[in-house]
């Protein structure tokens, strides 16, 4: 069984937000509530401030604190290493949002993050939070895939509706391989500078494993012990990206 993980090359990332847009479309996300986002922040002070950016999906941790705190086991980890939410079990207590060090979870049943409230324009059918004008065919509440229902928490699912159908034994889900492209997560597939890699972390020959090894991949907030399965690599130069040390960066 694969242990899916992601590598993001901060030297290649241009902060174009194509990944965020693709994620929004693929997962029927409301504006401002992308599972995947690129965060902008400033580093340094006048006269040499730098605008930096940092792509941040769910880390799909090896030891996910969000899973451990969930009183109903609605948040769970699959055998192939993906952290998912069973929307049918979620009671909307939001303890997972409290316990996630990365702030990558969303409770849609509240004021919109971005006005106007598009949920009022495209009102949801039944229990669904909204009815997006474009929506994918998949609606799989057991794996937290599709349009988010009311009263539950949602998060990045590594496009589980895609990766779970990949052929067994696949080392890397590479968008440049025509036979695998349909199984590649939307953010990886759409990344124009090819800054994202997705593959099996347990396979020493996968590209993600080699990148982590060769370029000394680091993990965000590693001191929390959550052990993310998303790794960041960079050249380490002054101009290249870096993993932010703190979460409360100054407003750009």
């Amino acid at each position: 069984m694969a242990k899916w993980g992601m590598v993001i090359d901060l030297e290649k990332c241009t902060g174009c937000q194509a990944c965020s847009t693709a994620c929004q479309m693929e997962n029927n996300r409301l504006p401002g509530e992308n599972y995947q986002d690129v965060l902008y922040y400033t580093d340094g002070r006048q006269p040499t401030p730098q605008l930096k950016w940092f792509p941040r999906p769910c880390m799909h941790c090896e030891e996910p604190s969000c899973m451990h705190v969930c009183p109903t086991k609605a948040t769970y980890k699959t055998e192939d290493g993906v952290v998912l939410i069973d929307w049918d079990k979620c009671i909307g207590c939001k303890y997972c949002m409290i316990a996630c060090p990365y702030g990558v979870r969303f409770y849609t049943d509240e004021k919109p993050l971005i006005e106007p409230n598009i949920k009022q324009v495209f009102k949801g059918d039944g229990d669904l939070s909204w009815n997006p004008p474009y929506k994918g065919p998949q609606q799989d509440p057991k794996h937290g895939v599709g349009i988010q229902p009311n009263g539950v928490v949602s998060k990045c699912n590594f496009c589980y509706h895609k990766i779970s159908k990949a052929p067994k034994g696949t080392a890397d889900l590479d968008e440049s391989n025509p036979e695998l492209v349909e199984y590649v997560p939307a953010c990886v597939r759409t990344c124009a500078p090819k800054a994202r890699y997705f593959g099996d972390l347990d396979n020493p020959n996968s590209q993600v494993s080699r990148l982590i090894s060769d370029k000394q991949g680091t993990r965000l907030l590693d001191h929390t012990g959550n052990k993310p399965q998303v790794y960041y690599v960079s050249g380490g130069g002054a101009a290249s990206g870096a993993v932010p040390g703190t979460r409360s960066n100054k407003k750009a």
């Binding site: 705190v69 009183p71 109903t72 079990k89 207590c93 939001k94 303890y95 049943d109």
Partner: peptide
């Protein structure tokens, strides 16, 4: 305050997460 207070009545007993303080 909960999203699904009535769901809690069956979801917690049937799926109790033993390492969750909230449980």
């Amino acid at each position: 305050e909960l999203g699904h207070p009535f769901r809690m009545l069956w979801a917690i007993p049937l799926n109790a997460q033993l390492v969750s303080p909230l449980n």
